[in-house]
Design a protein around this nucleic acid. Sequence first.
DNA 1: TGTGTTGCTGGGAATAATTATCAATAATAA
DNA 2: TTATTATTGATAATTATTCCCAGCAACACA
Lengths: 162, 162
Amino acid sequence: MIMGRRWGEGRPGGRWHGELRGCGYRVTMPRQVILQVLDEAKKHLSAEDIFIKVHQIYPAIGLTTVYRTLELLVRMGLVHKFDFGDGRARYELCDGNNEMAHHHHLICTDCGRVIDYDDFTEEETELIKKTEKELAKKYDFTVRNHTIQFYGLCKKCNALKK
Amino acid sequence: MIMGRRWGEGRPGGRWHGELRGCGYRVTMPRQVILQVLDEAKKHLSAEDIFIKVHQIYPAIGLTTVYRTLELLVRMGLVHKFDFGDGRARYELCDGNNEMAHHHHLICTDCGRVIDYDDFTEEETELIKKTEKELAKKYDFTVRNHTIQFYGLCKKCNALKK
DNA sequence: TGTGTTGCTGGGAATAATTATCAATAATAA
DNA sequence: TTATTATTGATAATTATTCCCAGCAACACA
Ligand SMILES: [Mn+2]
Ligand SMILES: [Mn+2]
Ligand SMILES: [Zn+2]
Ligand SMILES: [Zn+2]
């Protein structure tokens, strides 16, 4: 007797089968490929970036579906949506078991460069956890995630100012 | 002999005379009124909110000028620009000597409610300062300010889920 | 206190990201 | 396999923000 294997298991985008079904959503090709693209991405992508990458794997994809799916994944808490101030949203898979660890951002207000930053000190991680707990208690607010962004001037723009 | 008083001094929007002139900018009515409105605001306003309020004081104002001025003030570091994920930017006067102290945000991903949060512990404030210093050194990045936002479910939406 | 320079403004048009519509399609339960 | 209905994709619509440019006004310098 062969052990049953759930559909999509082992396939790049099929890893999230359980997550989707668990929330009562259907496991469709667009959803799988979008998740696969997000998973393989090493940096924050815009909706259009994602559309282009998905299109190479699954040409039938529509831009609307990309937006719709991203919104869904954000609601599900699987994806982070960021705004770096350039008029388009960026998306990153939340740190699960995968590549991209949770990180914060340094954003240059001059040239728009974004630096990912994830080598937190023990102290930092600890304090954030503690703060979240306190906020939860004080405001009766269930914290699901957070964004921390530092704005200023990057190395290059700093030099240019002098 | 009467002590000279700089133009606009004492007037609500004239408080920033020095800031503007110091950067080589002209002190115009739109700029003064926009700053006055931001100063009197108790909460984060959208560009349109600001336009409407300014319009009551200075009806000749144009929406374009509001956007232009806000961009200028953000570049000058006098104003904070936020994105709460509803498609429109929000603006708050940076904590100077004035009303609104520096604060962070709790954002409900369900209903969009935004809670201002500014009763930091000594520990929190300290760590942020320390982190900024470390980042400055490590990435050669001049930190000018930061945003910290916690996403999750507010009290009301939490109750509704059950 | 005039006057010239030029930074600043306002209205309207243009742009571009995101959403809404809706008939066709395909995932899932029976 | 078949029925149900969530999901999709093309297109149109929306909407925040930016561009453009002729007229205006702040202010440096008389
Ligand atoms: Mn990132
Ligand atoms: Mn606020
Ligand atoms: Zn830069
Ligand atoms: Zn809520």
